[in-house]
Write a protein that binds this DNA or RNA. Structure first.
Lengths: 214, 214, 214, 214
DNA sequence: CATGAATGAGTTTTCATTCAT
DNA sequence: GATGAATGAAAACTCATTCAT
């Protein structure tokens, strides 16, 4: 029960912090802003988090973990498995996750750089691991003939960057699209530049290509 | 001439500021760090710039202007002009510019978000204008049949994001490639996802890398 | 009996507090440090002591009381009593007590000043009472002809200070001597400066160390 | 001129700090108290001292240096020199110095222990060096036959402690005596316990012994 | 009796910016 | 123009103490 209380309070602070960060930006949010929103004393904050960075890191950790959980390695061994469908499932999960928590996405993808050395390191680490995973996946895909030949590192950079921007724009409202539209767009992009025509063509639904938007 | 002296001193401060920002990040750089590097008094700084943000903005303005100057609209009217070559020229100029001033690129693309409301607005404005320009160019391209059909806004987001990431990775050393390799990679990406096969094929040098297209 | 439990717990806290104070110093010891060592909750501490100062005072009170109990007035009325032996007994008791509880001695003699107004007052009071007692004893001694003529207040200051320093150095390890050596040293000092040659000579054990006296 | 201003301001802060420390004790003095007394802004303090400890150390350093300057090694080589007179000169200088700046004496001798690890180290260092100097001087004195045989370390502890207490009591008003009285008292003590009768007798002014005080 | 979550007063410290010289 | 001393607002953080359970 004590544990419950603690966890609940922790969550309260975490939620309030996310709100405050989203409103004022990490940098201009103060611990005071956060505790005021939760209506607790300043000291209470420090019972749960060592400092402002710690809350942000907790927020970020949670998010990065959820993102990581969305991503599954693609099984190219069994022909019965459709690589493209597996990829689409990954993309779909990440996009839906991102749209379901726009606040933290903005913070993590758009604003968290350069604010705090430790946070920077954490983001860089995540980014690097993601990039490495992608490069390795692309290598496997190339061996299996489903990924085009070419510079895998460049592919990884561009894909990651393109996808990130799609998420950012979706989340900031610069690009108002349904999850399905975003997923389709991502797959189209992947098919056009990453996959081989064979892999791309294999399972594409016939009527999914003709959307125009002003 | 007095104006010359002023301009020279201003430049000194600007250069020092870039160095300091690059080393410590905008946030952790102090006005002191800057003036110390120029060996002038604290007050002198404020004779040339209204505040700390102003130097950063000046730096950013200069850079964004130089970037803007790299980008030329593509003439699709005259068949004699090769759209792809024009595009490649744009890409080439931007990449070479970016590689020639990595410090400011890192600041502008990686670290400048969330630091200052005004700087944020400036970056957002540049980004939006670039995006708009791209969307319009894509629309023209679609009318001219050199750009694939499809959601132009999504294309713009993904392309911008992919390209930005390429630049960031190049500039931070995460992706060590020659300018030519980066240019080729970018064009490959554009041809694969943005241009129509016709446009892409049109001007491809005969002896280019072995990219297969169904 | 409840009272027993209370007393036991109180003692536990007192012991833990002494350890913590000795390790970190009163100032840098926190109530948390203390309760953690006893493995009780923060609030429990305040069931036994009004505040942080109160434990320190309790510790100090106990010590000062034990020191006080070591000191007995010297009977000069009955010639059968040897004043010097009585003095030596006093000295011996205090030195043995001090060596048996070095932690509190360090706190009381070395670190307790300037930490807390109330504690200061308590120490000053003890010091003053001790001083007064000494001055009166010296007066008696002078009347009885066993203490040299001279400024009794000065004698009291110097004797007290010299003795305190001896204890501090013994207790901090700066002066590693057996209790007997310290007692002898103290007596030598007293004989040299405080007592009259007659009183000093009177009862000196025949076989004592080879101290020369003109 | 700039240097003058700086030095003057530094002195102002130092003086104010001494006053504040003397009034409230180092521990309970705040940087605010100090700047308020000088009527400067909070930040100004930090232009001159890194923190509260730094002012205190500056104060202490100055004092310890002045004390150190009072103490001269005693020349036992030349019979023409009177060891006792040289010693008396040392004692006299230290006592006069102490009486001329009672505030810092109280802080340094009475209250500075246990307040701050760095300050502690500084005091301990000074104390240790003084003690070492004394032990060596006593050894020389023993070789020259002017200091009694006996445990030099004990002598050093007791002498230092006795003398310190004399200064403290003089400075706190517990012992109201003229400088001369304090000097005489100290010499009497030294002659009684430290010096050999020969050395002590050698140069003693005939009429200096008979002061009585209630 | 015991608990431990919550409190909030009280200090320190930094640094962009001003302004008298 | 140039200087650099002075400013003071703004935040972070600690920890003794309280009190509802």
């Amino acid at each position: 029960m004590t544990t419950d209380r603690r966890a609940a309070r922790r969550k309260q602070i975490l939620d309030a912090a996310l709100e405050v960060f989203a409103e004022k930006g990490y940098l201009y949010a103060t611990v005071d802003d956060i505790v005021e929103r939760v209506s607790v004393a300043r000291g209470t904050f420090y019972l749960y988090f060592g400092d402002k960075r710690a809350v942000f890191e907790a927020l970020l950790d949670g998010f990065l973990e959820r993102v990581g959980a969305c991503i599954e390695g693609i099984d190219l061994e069994h022909p019965s498995q459709d690589a493209r469908a597996q990829l689409r499932a990954n993309v779909s999960r990440v996009i839906r996750l991102a749209l379901s928590e726009p606040g933290i996405v903005r913070l993590a993808l758009l604003e968290a750089r350069g604010l705090d050395p430790e946070v920077d390191a954490k983001l860089r680490d995540f980014h690097d691991r993601l990039r490495l995973f992608l490069v390795e996946s692309l290598a496997e895909g190339q061996r299996a003939g489903v990924v085009r030949e070419g510079d895998r590192h460049v592919m990884a950079s561009v894909s990651l960057g393109g996808f990130r921007e799609l998420l950012i724009d979706a989340v900031t409202g610069a690009l108002e699209r349904t999850p399905e539209e975003l997923i389709d767009a991502t797959m189209t992009f992947v098919e056009g530049w990453v996959l081989t025509p064979r892999a791309a063509k294999a399972s594409r639904p016939v009527a999914s290509r003709s959307r125009k938007k002003g």
